[in-house]
Nucleic acid binder design. Structure first.
Lengths: 220, 220
DNA sequence: AATAAAATTTAGACAAATCTAAAAATATTA
DNA sequence: TAATATTTTTAGATTTGTCTAAATTTTATT
């Protein structure tokens, strides 16, 4: 089965929203898609007809198994292309999202598989997000956000929650990238900000909001 | 200026047709695009409004300078992606056309320039067609079809005229690829077929139709 | 529970790109 | 050159994805 660009975009967004909230509602999807609630309703009818969606009028909706697999196919393509753009074409990681949004809709199955092999079958994209395999299986990693790590413990940055250009720009400024060794020196109770130490850098302070979006795992 | 996928496809086809015939007419473009003459007329009006086309009703049409530049941008992307698919992803050269038809519409200028650099700024695509540079300048090469080459002279295959999957499949069977050294041993006047010798292969016979689509240049 | 507010859906419209059928213009030929 | 054939354009319809405004349903509040 293949889908239009618009269908794929809706499917992908619904997938991400239902990861957080279970059932998805019309207005939140409209906000994510930067469109109107009426347009969402129109598309929901189409996706239900194509048997990708559990949906009852006024009751919310979520992808069924077929819908989730379709979403994971798009997510897989998006993240493989992001990996390509950063690792092969040397793009900065905060510049690749929009381009990957276009590339993810290229339809050839064989292209995706060859790209995957060419890249060395990576498990995580440049933002640390897991890349589903061709069957939709997602690699797991034990990670916590920086705010929960014991003081002085050295850990490795594994992914970033908020992936806005603004956030990625800020992390670049702090010299925080995937794989960066990092430790928390002090927690300020006043506003939850943290004094941190990045390898080879002076200690500095990050806000609680930043800390919650930096995910880390134990050093291997 | 950026264009829709449909506009880009029309622009590209008009470019190729006008290379052969100067002025292009509605029916031949409709045939190339596998659409109806009425649809072509509709698009011609749009392209004229966007000042890409010299067009007078019933009189035929051709791209102006802006139109040609737009066409060359698409051709450049198409050929760079074909090069990528064959040289990096190891696709057979007869399998890449359809995928490149999708990739050529990805819009990022920076992507194209980085891809070009990543590939080593190639001058010719896997079918031997020249790749325009970012300014639309096309590399030239002195080439003739196999039918016009003196007997026994060893030349190098530089490009292929007819790029249908059928033709490319046939050339694969003859072990003719770009860069293959080749010579003509005998010309049969009866039907114009040629006995040829491909390096490391037994002599064999190709039809006049094949010969006319195999372009060669002098060995460097 | 009645009413107000919020969320969602329906109805009807629009733009892009296509189509069919018919009309108009041009080209061919007897 | 008049009749015929071919090519091209116009007129109007269709599909996809979107929109606005109004109607409906659900949820929250007094």
């Amino acid at each position: 089965m293949s889908y239009t660009v618009s269908e794929e975009n809706y499917i992908k967004r619904i997938y991400h929203l239902q990861q957080e909230t279970g059932l998805v509602n019309t207005n939140s999807l409209a906000a994510e898609m930067q469109t109107r609630a009426a347009s969402v309703t129109d598309m929901l009818k189409k996706l239900k007809t194509k048997k990708l969606l559990q949906y009852e009028k006024y009751k919310g909706f979520k992808l069924n198994e077929a819908g989730k697999k379709a979403a994971l196919d798009v997510v897989r393509k998006h993240r493989l292309w992001e990996y390509f753009l950063v690792e092969k074409l040397q793009f900065d990681w905060d510049k690749v999202h929009a381009i990957a949004e276009e590339l993810e809709h290229i339809s050839s199955e064989e292209l995706v598989q060859r790209l995957d092999n060419f890249l060395g079958n990576p498990s995580f994209d440049p933002h640390g997000d897991p890349i589903p395999d061709r069957n939709g299986k997602i690699p797991v990693i034990n990670q916590q956000n920086l705010g929960t790590i014991p003081l002085k413990k050295i850990v490795t940055v594994s992914s970033v929650g908020n992936q806005s250009a603004e956030m990625l720009d800020m992390l670049k400024h702090y010299h925080i990238a995937l794989g960066t060794p990092i430790s928390v020196l002090k927690r300020f109770e006043f506003d939850g900000s943290l004094e941190i130490k990045v390898l080879h850098r002076n200690a500095c302070i990050i806000s609680e909001q930043v800390a919650k979006n930096v995910f880390v795992h134990d050093v291997q």
